[in-house]
């Protein structure tokens, strides 16, 4: 426990010094603000970028607030996840290559607390960024569009957080298994895409799957997903997270000899 808190302090200092604690929230907040603002100014944007042909009549359906927040989630699904994977691809592999790991591994180190300290810091930063991003998006939706219940937002963000944790744990485990950060990012992307493909092909019959979590999260905005399936998906996702943490700590221990001096 003492080891864990000391390692966590090291992670905290590192994340401040490489500015991750500042720029990742900035990216998510910007993504969250952009979506409602672009939707609100759509007519003006179209006009400024060449406009419609003379005499064209174009009715703009005002998007409903839940559509805007779903669009924000879509942005996080693509750009947000890419940013998170790229930011954390080197957490363990990079430490092995830069030589920081040598200073750690010569001491009697519990690899579980080593991995957990990195996971805790990365999870805290990504979840706080995610929440700030959704809050910013929600605020601008209130400002420019109609009202949406805050409880619906909370339920949606809560379920989506589990999904982000799953992706993040996958990235960290890949970083522990593979020799460098680029490979880790590629592997995390490959798994992410393969899993989405599998879900697209078999998803109709397999409703209790962690890959369905973003969909279930979006369902909270308009009503609620089927509870038994939702709880099952959350449970499976949590199991996968725990499994990946164990796998990651084991791989970090297994690869300790590969560190460069």
């Amino acid at each position: 426990m003492k080891q864990f808190s000391i390692l966590l302090q090291k992670e905290w200092r590192e994340n401040i010094r490489n500015y991750k604690i500042f720029w990742i929230p900035c990216v998510f907040i910007l993504l969250g603000i952009t979506e409602p603002v672009v939707n609100y100014f759509m007519p003006q944007i179209l006009e400024a970028s060449g406009g419609l042909p003379e005499g064209a009549v174009f009715e703009f359906p005002t998007p409903s607030p839940d559509q805007i927040l779903m669009a924000v989630m879509e942005q996080f699904q693509t750009i947000g996840i890419v940013v998170l994977i790229l930011a954390y691809m080197g957490t363990i592999a990079g430490e092995r290559n830069s030589g920081t790991a040598t200073l750690l591994y010569v001491r009697p180190l519990s690899f579980l607390s080593y991995f957990l300290s990195k996971w805790t810091m990365a999870a805290a930063i990504s979840l706080i960024s995610l929440w700030l991003g959704f809050l910013a998006g929600y605020y601008y939706t209130l400002l420019f569009f109609e009202e949406l219940e805050f409880s619906a937002l909370l339920q949606m963000v809560g379920s989506y957080s589990i999904w982000i944790l799953l992706i993040l744990t996958l990235t960290l485990a890949a970083s522990a298994i593979l020799p460098n950060g680029g490979l880790a990012a590629a592997a995390a992307f490959a798994v992410y895409l393969l899993v989405q493909l599998a879900d697209g092909l078999l998803g109709a019959n397999w409703t209790i799957s962690p890959m369905k979590l973003p969909g279930y999260a979006a369902a909270w905005l308009t009503g609620n997903p089927r509870l038994s399936e939702f709880v099952g998906a959350i449970g499976l996702a949590l199991l996968a997270i725990i499994g990946l943490i164990v796998l990651g700590s084991w791989a970090a221990w297994k690869n300790k000899a590969k560190t460069k001096v």
């Binding site: 490489n18 500015y19 500042f22 720029w23 900035c26 990216v27 907040i29 910007l30 603000i33 952009t34 603002v37 910013a136 601008y140 400002l143």
Partner: peptide, 21 residues
């Protein structure tokens, strides 16, 4: 006023990146 935060965050990101560079 409502659009001000976008510029503030953008400038903030730029300053963090420049200091780090």
């Amino acid at each position: 006023l409502a659009l001000l935060p976008i510029f503030v965050i953008q400038i903030g990101l730029m300053i963090f990146a420049l200091v780090d560079l």
